[in-house]
Amino acid sequence: MATTLSKDKTRPSADSGTGFPHVISITSGKGGVGKTNVSANLAYLLASMGKRVVLLDADLGLANVDVMLGLAPQKNLFHLFHENAGLSDILYPTPFGFTILPASSGVSDMMDLDTGQKLELLESMDILENDIDYLLVDTGAGINDNVLYFNLAVQERILVLTPEPTSLTDAYALIKVLKAQHGIERFRVVVNMAKNMAAAKEIYLKLHTACDQFLSGVSLDLLGVLPYDQSVRSSVIKQQPFAQAFPDSPASQALAGVARRINAWKAPTQLDGNIKFFWKKLLFQE
């Protein structure tokens, strides 16, 4: 399905001072923490606020946003890189109020983009610049090249973890690599599937303490805590965002609070030396 995002000229773009959208990654050190579910539901909640949202499935070899939402796009990023499709051919409007940019699943040569493909993606994203308020980037898990690349290319990083020791150690590993190798120091944290607030705060404080002790300069802001909620699993089976299917559930209410906090973020006033957008005109800006 080819599409062109509608242009609502009565509404300014998210960053009215610069004309640029907010670009935010949702990332994690390990799989199984609910990162993609958080991404899809944040997209739904921001769209419900009247924002123009695109969700990029950046887990390029193991993509599953479309499956989670019960969608069947005909084209994805594989077709951009290998079959000369344009971005407008790939963008897929969902019935949930936001658009997805799907990737492929089970295609091994999508696991690591080469430099030319990265530049091709940067250039192709130009068409979105004036038409969206938020680009949410659902990265893969871990510290492979694609995960690092997408985390470098955004303005804000939301790190999802759960109250489990392996989630904590893998989240720390991702922060360490981004800090040590690329100078990234600011992260927002969402603790997911928390049995109670005490457990959530304990895992956050452990991560904060480790970063404070061994990674000087790293800033960790607790953006929200999402409780363990059976309705989340039920919505996955229904292939529907839990914030839509069960809007009054504890997880939906907690994530709605996260979405409101994100919507209150001010536009950045300067770049810090990394690629902060996907758009090529910033690629060469100092």
Rank of each mutant, 00 (worst) to 15 (best):
L226D: 06
K206M: 00
D126E: 14
L226F: 09
Y204K: 02
I275N: 07
G32E: 12
N41P: 01
L168R: 11
L220M: 01
L174C: 01
R157V: 03
N76Y: 04
H208F: 10
P250M: 05
F150N: 14
M110Q: 06
Y149T: 13
L101E: 10
K7M: 09
D221T: 13
D272R: 15
S104R: 05
S88A: 12
F242W: 05
Y134M: 12
W279F: 15
P102A: 01
V191F: 08
I90A: 05
V54G: 14
Y228C: 00
F96S: 08
S249D: 04
F96R: 06
R233N: 04
P102H: 01
D221R: 12
P268G: 01
D114M: 07
T115L: 06
G19A: 07
H79Y: 07
L56G: 11
R186Q: 14
W279T: 03
K176M: 06
M68H: 02
D145L: 07
R11E: 04
Y228P: 00
D109T: 09
I237D: 08
P247Q: 05
Y172S: 02
A200M: 08
V160D: 11
L128S: 10
L5N: 12
D131W: 00
M197T: 11
V154C: 08
N37D: 02
V107I: 15
S252L: 05
F20Q: 10
G224P: 07
M110A: 03
P247T: 03
A153T: 14
A173C: 05
A72C: 11
S25I: 01
L62I: 10
I143R: 15
V147Q: 12
I237H: 13
G19R: 14
A259W: 13
V137I: 06
L128A: 11
P241I: 11
R157M: 06
L152A: 05
T10E: 14
L101A: 13
K35I: 10
R188G: 02
N196R: 10
D66Q: 03
W279A: 03
Y204C: 01
A40G: 15
A245I: 05
N196T: 06
A198P: 00
A14R: 15
K238E: 00
L136D: 10
G97D: 01
F150C: 11
V236E: 00
G61A: 15
F78Y: 15
V225F: 06
R260E: 11
Q253K: 15
S16G: 03
M110V: 02
A259V: 10
G50N: 08
L45W: 09
